[in-house]
Structure formats: C-alpha cells, structure tokens
Write a protein that binds this DNA or RNA. Structure first.
Lengths: 365, 365
DNA sequence: GCCATTTATGCAAACGATTGCATAGAGCTT
DNA sequence: AAGCTCTATGCAATCGTTTGCATAAATGGC
C-alpha cells in the first residue's frame, strides 16, 4: 500500500540497510548517498512505519496520559498542554480516562504497557501502587497531581498547603476573621493539605480555629451546596467562604443565589482552581490558581528526562528528587471584599470575634 | 522482558503456530490443546504484543479522535463517550487536539495514518478535504459535528436547523415576539443552519424577521457581550435572547449582570448546547441540547460499521447514507418565562408588536 | 606500491506475531 | 487392512524496520 524502505532502497539501488542508516542518520553513511537517499525518500513520499520500527526498537513514540475525567477544568488544560508538548517532539499522546476507578485504572495500565508506550503520566487513584511500581521498571512513569503512597514514583504535585495558606491569608488580610472552609475529604492528600494551609494561615494571624467553619466532602456541586447551607445557617455565619475546589463552588453559588446573598457584599467567596467562566461571572470569582499549566509542563519535563535517561541507559533518570511542588498563586478578581472589622456583616448577634484582634497587623500587609 | 508467544509454545511443547492459533481462536486446533494453551498462557501471564501483531495484520487497535480543543463542553463529552465505547471493544483512543488549525490537522492526520490507526473520527477544519478523501481509502473515517464540503465522507451532524427552530418556537410559545439571536459566523454551516431554524420558527408563527435582532460572530464570550449590548441598547429591545452557542452565553450573562437585568424577569435567556454549570446557575439556564452524547455514539457506531466492513472486505461500509442528523431537544430550566402579550417588558415605547398576533395560536401548542 | 586502517556498504538475523502450505496421524469406509 | 478423508500440528515465510558482522572500497603512511 504505502511506500516502504525497500522501495526507497530499490529506487536508489542500495541495500535496505544502507537506506535505513541513511534515513535514520545512525551509523556510517557517506555524505553523498545520505543526501541522495533523503531526496529519493522525499520524492517517493516515504514515511517510516512506526509499527515495524517499534517492533524492532521496542518503542512506539506513544506517550499516555491517564486522568480521571475531562470535565475537570484542570485536567483539560493539562491534557492540552501535554498533547502540545509531546506533539512538538514527535510523540502521539494516548489520552485515557480512568474515572478515578481503580479497576479501570488497572485495566488501562495493562493495555498501555501492552502497546509499549514510551512513557506515562498518570493521576493515580492510589489503589494500584504495586502495579505502577512494577510497570515503572519497564516504562518511565511520572505521577501527577496525586501521590500514590504505595510507590516512590516521581510525583509532580500542586503546592496545596501553600495555595490554601495563600488564599486564607488573603481573606484574613481583607479583614475576615470568620472564614468558612469547604474542603475535600480528609482521606485524600489534597483534602488534608488544603486544610493544613488554611489552619496555618489562621494560626499565624492568631485566629482561633473553629471547627464549625470547616466542612469536608467530595468534590461535587452537591457538597458545596450542603456545606454552604450549613455554614450560612450558623448562629454566627462566616463573612467569607473559601471553597477549596471548583466543582463545589457551583453548589455554593447556587445557595447564595437562592438566598439572595450578595457577593462580595454580604459574603466574600474565594475558590480553588480556575474555571474558564469564573472571570466572566459577575462578580468575577477570585481564585487560588493551582498552576495546572505548570504542573503539566513540569510533568512532561520530568518524563522526558526519564525517557531520555532510559534511552541512554544512564540509570533511571531519577535526580534524587521524588516530589516536585508547583507553586500556587492568588488571582484577585471581584468576589472578595475588604470588611470593616468593627461592623461584621449579616451576623445575627454580633458579639466580638474570638480572635486576638490581629486585624490591624494583617490588614497592613 | 515480557513473556512471548514463543515462551508459551515452549512451555506447552507445541510450535509457535499452534500456540497462535489456539490463543487467537482462528484456525483448526483440537479442543484439548486449545484449552491447555489458554491455561498455560494465563499462568505465564502472556499478553500478546499489539505491535508485532499489528505489523503482520496491518492493524493497531488504535482509533483516533481529532477535535479542536477540550475546553468546549461538547468535545469533552464526546471524547469521554468515544473513549468509553472504544475501550469496551478493546481499542485504545488516540485523542488529538487540532485547535481548528488546518496545518495542525494535516500534520496530525499524517502521523495518525503512519501509526496505522484502525479508524478515525474527526471534526474537520474544512481545509483538508483532499487529504481526508485520500486517507479514507486506507482507513475508515467518520466526520463529526462539521462537514467538510470538499469530501463526501460519512458525516454525523447535529440537527442545527431543528434545534434552533425548537428553541425559537419555545420562546414564541411563551409569548415572546421580539427574540434576539446571537449566532455564529455565517460562513460556517452551523451558523447558517441555526439562523435558518430561527427564521423558520418566526415565519411559521407569522412574526416578521427583524435583522436588528440578529447578530453573528465568533463563538467566544466577547461576541456574546458585544451582541448582548447591541440588543439591549435597541430602542425596542428583545424580551428574549437566544444564544446559539455556549461560549457566547458567558458574555451575555456578564452584560445582564452588569446592567442588573433580571433573568427571566426582565429578559428570557435560552442557550444552545449544555455546560455542566448551567443547571447549577441561578436561574438554571434553559438550553437546546445538541445531543453531544448521541452524536458521539452514532459516530462510533458508524465508524465501527465501516471498520467491520473493511475487515470483511464487503465494500466500504457505506450504507448509502452520507449524512446523519442527530435530533436536538429542548431542556427547560428556569431562564425563560412566559410573558404577557399585553405588557411588553422593559421596552421604552411599547407600541404594539408588528407580528400578526399569532400569540394565541402558538401559545396553545 | 603494499599493508594497515578507516569508511561505506551489503547480508542476514532479529523483533513477535500470523498464516499458507505440507505433513503426520486419526478415523472411516469398503 | 488398504485407501481415503479430515483434522491437528509444524515449518517457514512474511510484515517493515534495525543492527551486528563480514566484506569491499577507499584512504593513508611508509
């Protein structure tokens, strides 16, 4: 069907091996035949067959990205970044969707390795550590966004403690003392880490932690709605809510709309992770950007490094670092407002906050 | 490294060919050796090498999906659907992102064919018709969402004329007579078709078309905002706006928020295509669902059909149909309201509408 | 100008599967 | 029991590359 190396060799009246060497650039070929072959190959429209090549070399020029879904905005940009980077290097991306399901993840991993992928970037479910560990002997693997504690695979993570800290501190600096937190389940790393950042910021500002203000749940809109209701129903509701996940934000927004709570007038809202419509929303929603682009780029860097190392068989490409943290940053839009320490908003009974009046200190930062 | 067919054959003390036949099920093998080999293969953890198999059979068990981006919600669900369907059939999906760029599309197509993909579902840019046409001789191709007029490839399309008609009629039935339309560029099929559905619904209801109410532009938020402003600045602004694209909806919502226009109190809003947050938004946004799921499923069906036909070499799998239309449907939520024909909303000078008073007729439908 | 060295080429064996063809038995018929 | 068919197996070629090894050609040193 298509033109093969043999055809090119015949046309040039050389052997297939010479043709191969000339076109791949490897090995010894005279300048002249080299150029002649390149020309002839071009004229004939020769395109190497990656399958045949792969059979011999054990490589496929395929790199897989395994994420949980595509509805998550972070995964979308990661997929786009990874695809773009890989494509520029002549790799094709195999995008797989695992749905955060260990069984699906396991199956997919098997298939991918069958296909002799050259590398893998995976957002692990955390339940297939052993398998990942085994596979990593055959193919370079980098974990993304989540760590699989059962492995010591190289992992690129968002700096969730810092992100949550940054966001919380921002709210504190705006004068908020009662800050509601809607966070992920505490059996996930990100859930725990975001809580810890929040707690640290409070502690630094000398604000006592109030567990009534902290709610955890799955990263879905329903959680956001439920937790928001609980927070707003408090005898002394928070003046700001930090939603540590973008899906949950949907639920929070619905509740505030239902109850006619003005943002940021009655309530400041800060959100973790960006969504494309956040800046179009009125008010535009301030966020802590988890740096999805940077995460993806770094993961690709690390993967390429390992793939390279493997190719040259200089070790496994580990540079001794197991965990990379990508910094989060605050993007201020219009959903958080400075509040006057003396006039708490919407609180039924406005007895003085229990915090140690660190408002002045933090406000001037 | 991994266990090959040869290993299995040796362990079972048969030839490689027997092993192959037993495991693939093809050809003649005695019941006993067949089962024995299956057992041994399982024990040894044998997994066929798709690359080696592909070299011989010319197949790869890879099917590519080429879309413009992943930020578009429709493409997201399509990608998820295609992935899920293919996976169940033992195929891996190669997801490629072309960015609606002809050059990128062309490059990607070449690479994909090099990789001997077994099938391709593509949202064409419309600029690489010749290439697609050529490729379709080697590999089954189905176009999705957009038609490439330079080809006669089988194409699965949304029924945009019907969808736009449905949406417009819904608004008319609610009593609206001045319905603004924000639609895609008129040099795209979808832009033209959505306009035509709108026009037909008006005509049927005996409402005169008013070009001041019709605005076209790119499918981006900015367009939505600009067009919304133009519409709302009219001397007699529309009582409803039909936004024929979800990206543009962002812009419209921003403008209505800025101007403090209540939805659906002051203005009814109907949108084309769904986004995950539409139902969480307050008011929940009514939409015309373009049927992304159905589109993707049908595209997969057709592709499989063609792949099957090719495998059995019974023609090219064309069933004579070149174009499939997937019906749109209306999903009513809370952003459209019935208006009283006698009291036009927010219009400065409320002279009677120019329509031939078909309100009664359409309202009772 | 001859031998040693380098450089360029070709031959043929891989890679791991599939598959047409040949053949060795098993089972039947007569 | 001979002849026949039919089934189960093995042999070997093949898919399109890459690559180790052998060899031919070219170069250089003396």
């Amino acid at each position: 069907m298509s033109v093969t190396l043999k055809d090119v060799a015949q046309a040039a009246r050389v052997s297939v091996s010479t043709a191969s060497r000339a076109l791949t650039g490897t090995g010894l070929t005279s300048e002249r035949t080299q150029q002649r072959l390149v020309r002839i190959a071009r004229e004939l429209g020769y395109r190497p067959n990656p399958i045949a090549r792969g059979l011999k070399t054990g490589q496929s020029r395929l790199v897989a990205l395994l994420v949980h879904n595509l509805t998550n905005a972070s995964f979308q940009v990661m997929a786009e970044v990874v695809q773009a980077r890989l494509k520029a290097l002549g790799y094709q991306m195999l995008l797989c969707i695992g749905g955060d399901d260990p069984q699906a993840e396991s199956d997919t991993l098997t298939t991918l390795v069958d296909h002799r992928i050259d590398g893998l970037i995976v957002v692990p479910t955390g339940k297939n550590g052993a398998q990942l560990e085994t596979l990593s002997k055959d193919v370079p693997i980098v974990c993304l966004v989540r760590r699989d504690d059962a492995t010591d695979l190289e992992t690129v993570l968002a700096d969730d403690p810092q992100g949550a800290y940054l966001g919380t501190r921002h709210l504190i600096e705006l004068g908020h003392k009662r800050i509601g937190l809607i966070v992920g389940r505490q059996d996930t790393t990100s859930g725990r880490e975001r809580l810890s950042g929040y707690v640290r910021a409070l502690r630094e500002a000398g604000i006592a932690r109030d567990d009534a203000l902290i709610h955890a749940g799955h990263y879905v809109p329903e959680t956001g709605a439920t937790c928001a209701r609980k927070l707003l129903d408090l005898r002394r509701p928070p003046s700001a809510i930090f939603v540590a996940n973008h899906e949950a934000t949907l639920g929070v927004l619905r509740v505030t709309a239902e109850r006619n709570i003005a943002i940021p007038g009655d309530l400041s809202l800060l959100c973790y992770e960006d969504m494309p419509w956040f800046e179009w929303h009125r008010p535009a929603i301030s966020i802590v950007d988890n740096g999805a682009r940077d995460l993806a780029n770094l993961a690709v860097d690390r993967l390429l490094h390992r793939m390279d190392a493997k190719g040259n068989s200089k070790g496994n490409g580990s540079d001794g670092v197991r965990e990379y943290r990508v910094g989060a940053r605050l993007i201020q839009r219009d959903s958080c407002r400075r509040i006057d320490a003396t006039a708490p908003a919407r609180s039924a009974k406005s007895k003085p906050s229990s915090s140690k009046s660190s408002a002045a200190k933090s406000a001037k930062v």
